[in-house]
């Protein structure tokens, strides 16, 4: 019980940066990549500055790969001869060292990452950025950091996605798995979209209690990051932030991928179809004809519905 007083609230922020070279802003003006990166690095450093025990990790993704650009594996190794005790001293005079280290590490890792993309260049123009993959990495990482935290440390983890891509349909299942895992582990997922309204990611924000924001112009990116996404979720209630978007939760049928209001669901595998068919295309179950579908039990009906 004495631990209550010593309990330290800390925050791990994992930023997923979309580095797909076909994002419009990168195609139009490749130099803007540095502008976006500098904003992300500033956000990361501001987050570290808020509390000495705050942590940050950055994951990059494009159409061919997703990879960590910065995590605790890249942290500055303690100098030999310096014991654990002296880290507190190092922090007071070593803040700038840490910030500079983060910047150089991220930039170096991005260079390697982008070169990888060049070498495995993709013919398919429409292939999507592997954001869902980056998120699975982030969740594994958060899972570990959470296990390694010291007693009395209350670690809140959250995700921030920065993307200028549309779509996400091809990774639908992975996205859903990520959303539910994050929700289960109380990880808030925020999205800062540079260009599109993203239906799927909006669902993710809604499920995890995060914010979705499509910024009106890239120039103001850093301001948006610092005003909207730097504050921790509990503080946000007190701020004036963009209202939550309307999220469409209707189902898409497995047969045509169209959104439907009423559909048929396979009782064995829960696949959704827009019309009755005698066999389930997902699990090959043969169904009884629709006449026998009515439940035997009728619940008490409520009259006077108006």
């Amino acid at each position: 019980m004495a631990a209550m007083a010593d309990e330290v609230e800390t925050s791990l922020l994992v930023i997923v940066v979309d580095l797909h070279t076909r994002q419009r802003y990168l195609r139009d003006q490749p130099s803007l990549l540095m502008h976006v990166l500098d904003s992300v690095i500033t956000l990361a450093n501001m987050h570290l500055m808020l509390k000495t025990k705050n942590k940050v990790a950055i994951v990059g993704c494009n159409a061919s790969n997703s990879e960590f650009l910065f995590c605790d594996a890249d942290a500055i190794q303690p100098q030999p001869g310096q014991s654990g005790q002296s880290t507190a001293v190092r922090q007071s005079d070593g803040q700038y060292e840490i910030f500079a280290h983060l910047e150089t590490t991220v930039k170096q890792n991005i260079k390697d990452f982008m070169q990888d993309e060049q070498s495995t260049f993709f013919e398919d123009k429409d292939c999507e950025s592997l954001i869902a993959g980056a998120l699975t990495l982030a969740l594994c990482y958060i899972n570990r950091i959470n296990k390694e935290k010291s007693a009395g440390e209350n670690l809140n983890s959250r995700l921030l996605i920065l993307t200028g891509c549309a779509g996400g349909a091809s990774q639908h299942m992975a996205y859903m798995n990520v959303f539910f895992t994050a929700q289960k582990q109380n990880i808030v997922m925020d999205v800062c979209s540079l260009e599109y309204e993203l239906g799927l990611l909006q669902q993710g924000c809604d499920i995890t209690g995060g914010l979705f924001l499509k910024i009106p112009q890239l120039q103001g990116l850093l301001q948006y990051l610092l005003w909207v996404f730097l504050p921790e979720p509990p503080i946000r209630k007190k701020l004036v932030l963009p209202p939550p978007a309307r999220v469409d939760y209707r189902a898409a049928c497995f047969c045509h991928r169209t959104l439907i209001d009423i559909g048929f669901v396979c009782s064995i595998c829960l696949s959704i179809f827009c019309k009755f068919s005698p066999i389930c295309t997902t699990c090959n179950t043969v169904f009884k004809p629709p006449g026998s579908l009515l439940p035997k039990k009728k619940k008490k009906q409520i009259k006077n519905v108006c």
């Binding site: 209707r250 209001d261 009423i262 559909g263 048929f264 669901v265 064995i268 169904f287």
Partner: peptide, 23 residues
């Protein structure tokens, strides 16, 4: 038995599930 069960997918009429009357 195996059957296709008819189900409805309601529109999410406003904001989050927990949204209250004021919003």
């Amino acid at each position: 038995d195996c059957s296709l069960v008819r189900m409805g997918f309601p529109h999410h009429s406003n904001g989050t599930e927990s949204s209250d009357a004021s919003s």
